[in-house]
Computed example of a mutant assay.
Amino acid sequence: MNTALPPRLSILIATANSELSSTLAAMLRRLGLTNTRIARDSAEAFRLLSQSPYDAMILDSAIGPEDGIAVTRRVRLNAAAPNRAMAIVMVSGDMPPEQTKDARDAGIDEFIRLPAGAQILAARLETAIAAPRPFVVSPDYAGPDRRRREEPIDGKDRRAPLKRPSKPQGPTT
C-alpha cells in the first residue's frame, strides 16, 4: 500500500485489547511500518514513553487504568516529556461526541472510529505526521492547533496567526 509515511517511524500502540493491538500492528506492517511497540495499559505506555522517543502513539480511548484522554493530557502537559509533541491518534469503537471533543481538547492529533481499515489508519497518520498542524503550548493546553482552517470572525481576533509549515515536517527516526 502506498503511503507518504517514512518507513522508519517509531510507533507505540497503547491498548489493553490484545486483538486490537495485533490488528493495528498488522495494519502498520502492511503500510511498511515495522518499528512498533505495544503497551497493554497506561502504566506500561508511560514506562515505554520514558525509555524511547516515538514519532506517534496509537492510543485506545479505553486503555485503562487511566483512559486515553487522561493519558493524552499527561503526555502533552509534561514539559519535560521527550514525546510531548509526538503525533497521537486515538482509536475508539464508540465514543460520544462530548468525549471526542474532550479528547481533542486534551491534545490528540487525529481520531479513528473503529472498525477501520489500513487506509484510514494511513490517512490519519499521514495527516498527523507528514502534514502536522503547529504545536501549541499554553498554561492549560499543549498539542496540535485545534483550528483546522482559518475563518473570519466577528470582532477582534486575539489569536496569533496560524502558521503552516512550508513543507511536510515530521519526526524522522
Results as ranks from 00 to 15, higher is better:
Lys167Leu: 13
Met27Leu: 12
Leu33Asp: 00
Glu151Gly: 09
Val71Trp: 01
Arg148Leu: 14
Lys101Arg: 13
Thr173Trp: 00
Pro144Glu: 08
Leu20Ser: 14
Ala81Gly: 08
Arg37Pro: 00
Leu121Asp: 01
Glu19Leu: 12
Arg133Gln: 10
Leu125Thr: 03
Glu151Trp: 12
Pro97Cys: 07
Arg124Leu: 06
Ala16Glu: 05
Ala142Tyr: 06
Ile129Gly: 00
Ile63Gly: 00
Lys156Trp: 11
Val136Ala: 06
Ala79Ile: 12
Leu24His: 10
Glu66Tyr: 06
Gly32Pro: 07
Leu28Gln: 04
Ala4Lys: 14
Ile112Cys: 06
Ala26Met: 12
Ile153Cys: 13
Ala70Val: 09
Ala106Gly: 05
Met57Asn: 01
Ala116Thr: 06
Thr3Ser: 12
Arg29Ala: 14
Lys101Gln: 13
Val71Gly: 01
Gly170Met: 04
Asn78Gln: 15
Leu114Trp: 11
Gly32Lys: 04
Leu48Pro: 00
Leu49Trp: 00
Leu59Thr: 05
Ala14His: 04
Pro171Lys: 07
Pro97Met: 10
Arg113His: 13
Thr15Lys: 03
Ala85Cys: 10
Pro139His: 08
Ala131Tyr: 11
Thr3Gly: 05
Ser21Glu: 11
Arg148Met: 11
Ser61Lys: 06
Ala130Cys: 15
Ala56Glu: 00
Ile112Asp: 02
Asn83Ala: 04
Gly117Asn: 15
Glu19Ala: 13
Met57Gln: 04
Arg37Trp: 00
Ala14Phe: 05
Glu44Ile: 04
Ala79Lys: 14
Arg124Ala: 10
Pro96Ile: 06
Leu77Pro: 01
Leu59Pro: 00
Gly68Gln: 05
Ile120Ser: 08
Leu125Trp: 00
Glu150His: 07
Ala70Asn: 07
Ser22Met: 08
Ala118Phe: 07
Asn2Lys: 12
Ala123Met: 12
Ser22Thr: 08
Pro139Gly: 12
Arg47Val: 03
Asp105Glu: 14
Pro65Cys: 08
Gly64Thr: 10
Gln169Trp: 10
Arg104Thr: 10
Thr15Phe: 02
Phe46Ala: 05
Ala25Lys: 10
Arg147Tyr: 09
Arg37Phe: 00
Pro161Asp: 11
Val136Gln: 06
Ala130Lys: 05
Gly170Phe: 02
Ala80His: 13
Thr72Asp: 01
Arg8Asn: 15
Lys163Leu: 15
Arg37Met: 03
Pro115Gly: 10
Lys101Leu: 15
Arg158Phe: 13
Gly117Glu: 13
Ser10Met: 05
Ala85Leu: 09
Asp140Pro: 02
Pro53Phe: 04
Pro144Ala: 13
Val91Leu: 06
Pro168Cys: 09
Ala25Gln: 12
Gly64Pro: 02
Met90Pro: 04
Pro132Glu: 09
Ile11Asp: 01
Ile88Pro: 03
Ser21Phe: 08
Asn78Met: 08
Gly64Lys: 06
Ala45Phe: 02
Val71Ala: 01
Pro53Met: 07
Asn83Glu: 03
Arg73Phe: 05
Asp105Phe: 09
Arg124Glu: 12
Gly32Trp: 04
Arg29Gly: 07
Met57Ile: 14
Ile129Thr: 03
Gly170Arg: 01
Leu59Met: 11
Ile11Cys: 03
Arg146Phe: 07
Ala39Arg: 01
Ala25Tyr: 04
Lys163Tyr: 11
Arg113Glu: 14
